[in-house]
Nucleic acid binder design. Sequence first.
DNA 1: TATCTTTTTGCAAACGCTTGCAAAATGGTT
DNA 2: AACCATTTTGCAAGCGTTTGCAAAAAGATA
Lengths: 342, 342
Amino acid sequence: MAHKKTLTDITIIDVAREAGVSYSTVSRVVNNKSYVKPETRERVTQAMHRLGYQANLQARSLAGGHSHVIGLLVHNMSTQYMGEIFRGIDDVLATHNYEVMLYTTHRRRTKESAYVNMMARGLADGLLIVLPRQPEAYIESLRARDFPYVLIDQVGIDEHDVSVTATNFQGGYDATTHLIELGHRRIGKITGWMDMVSARDRLEGYKAALSDHGIPVDPELIVIGDFEKISGYQGAATLLDLAAPPTAVFASNDVMAQGALELFRERSLQVPQDISLVGFDDIPIAAILNPPLTTLRQPMVEMGRLATQMLLDWISDPEQKPASVILPTELIHRESTSLPQS
Amino acid sequence: MAHKKTLTDITIIDVAREAGVSYSTVSRVVNNKSYVKPETRERVTQAMHRLGYQANLQARSLAGGHSHVIGLLVHNMSTQYMGEIFRGIDDVLATHNYEVMLYTTHRRRTKESAYVNMMARGLADGLLIVLPRQPEAYIESLRARDFPYVLIDQVGIDEHDVSVTATNFQGGYDATTHLIELGHRRIGKITGWMDMVSARDRLEGYKAALSDHGIPVDPELIVIGDFEKISGYQGAATLLDLAAPPTAVFASNDVMAQGALELFRERSLQVPQDISLVGFDDIPIAAILNPPLTTLRQPMVEMGRLATQMLLDWISDPEQKPASVILPTELIHRESTSLPQS
DNA sequence: TATCTTTTTGCAAACGCTTGCAAAATGGTT
DNA sequence: AACCATTTTGCAAGCGTTTGCAAAAAGATA
């Protein structure tokens, strides 16, 4: 076969031949290793450019080098919540010439564990795990092999874990306090997926705010949701059907708040005149809803950015395991809350 | 080192030893090849399960096998448009045990070409390319190597290309016809990124509808946009500042329509009473906007689903190159259009 | 010039898998 | 039993890269 090699067929051997050195010298140049004479380095670099060499990712990874791939484990990539986090992740990766291997688990624990194991075998240089469901199943293994990972929106199994989270407890506390200060005393709460620490912390913040204001917690006012719109819709229906319905509702995320809004509209309830509503996250639709949603802003882009930077730093310097970070939430006042109807 | 191999260290050699066969027999079992006795196949399968063997992706790929990875090339993963397409892609991949290697180009042509070359080197079994900007730079190469790819929302360079698109011309025609039938004669048009065929086709449909209704095309009513919200905002400002402003605006996507809506709100214009507005895509926010947006629905989830199925079929049977598909757009009547104000 | 230290370079092995091909085994036919 | 065809199995090579280590080269010093 005498045809000229195409761009995608150029290997390290071709570059070595072109530059008149061994392929291990080319490897040292490609990977910015020392022990290469400046003139040799220059000659190899030019040969690489001339031939348009691109390292074969799988070979590099198999041989023990860096793949420059980050594994990203998510439940689902089609939500605005995830879109915002990914925006932050993408920003950082792009400026560091890293790519993403994306795994969507659709919340299945077994998938989560299997993916982590697969990615930790060398294909990825590190892992970003968003809202992990079962970290205990694989964290020890990742630690035993000193494999870099950062958990996002979940604290992991103990204080040695590396994570980026937000002040969910405080956010839940602030949302509830806001409603209390408006005069609401019966405040409904639609939780998130209770497997997740973020959902539990938001509920704890809600309870703490009530207690701190001398308002007893009424279990009837707490309905379990799953962060999906329909559970917000159904949760709102359950709350409105109570003998003593709430005058305000705090949903554990904006998507469920959106569902609640739809239910209120169907029941001809005006928000905020008839019933106040607070969400959580401040995903882009929060500001678009009618009325624009008052919500707790979780700095998702910043979480993605920070987690990714921490992970890349850890990969770059394996001795420097990063410290976990908790970012502040912030109450965003819009138009979905007001004094209770007298 | 006498410690037991961990789950992630089990190789094909371990399985071979456990089952008492050669590793090439294990490979034949793993890859469902023939020429393995049923009893042998069972014995190997049990050893695999017992040891929890997971093939090393990079090794498999390097050795010429299937990686079960699909390369996905997008501009940006954080938009609802992309989220919807990805939903369809994800649905299909999940049921076929394929994973995604995600590359975001942020619309840079050079990145597009480099990523395609990298992925086609064996790491991915096939490519999905969403809204390609410069297909001519790599399509020939992909074809020369019979590498499976499917273009999404772009037709490629000739009739031999494999793509999944929607009837953009017809959509633009229908949107404009809808406004004309309501009585509008001055209809503003905010285009998308004119590098893209979808943007050009929507504009052509707009022009054709005007012509077919005996309405001359006024170039002043056409402003160039880039599919981003701010260009919708600015485009709407340009249109409203005309000596003879339009009574209706057709934006080439919902995101720009959202920007136009914001501008109208700032100018105290009521939609649809003072000015009608039509978008394109029917991403999830279209129904949430105030007023809910009349728009041309592009079946994005279905596009993602279909493209992915086509690609997997092609990978599965390399002799069967799939035929391109054009999915219909559909006018979705909501509340942003009405008769022009007299 | 001899000796020592450091830098540079290339050989060889390895990574975990797939696959061509030859050898061995099996089954069928004469 | 001999022969032929098919199935099964395992050896060996290879994929493209990284890296340990030895050899060669270069530089410094006495």
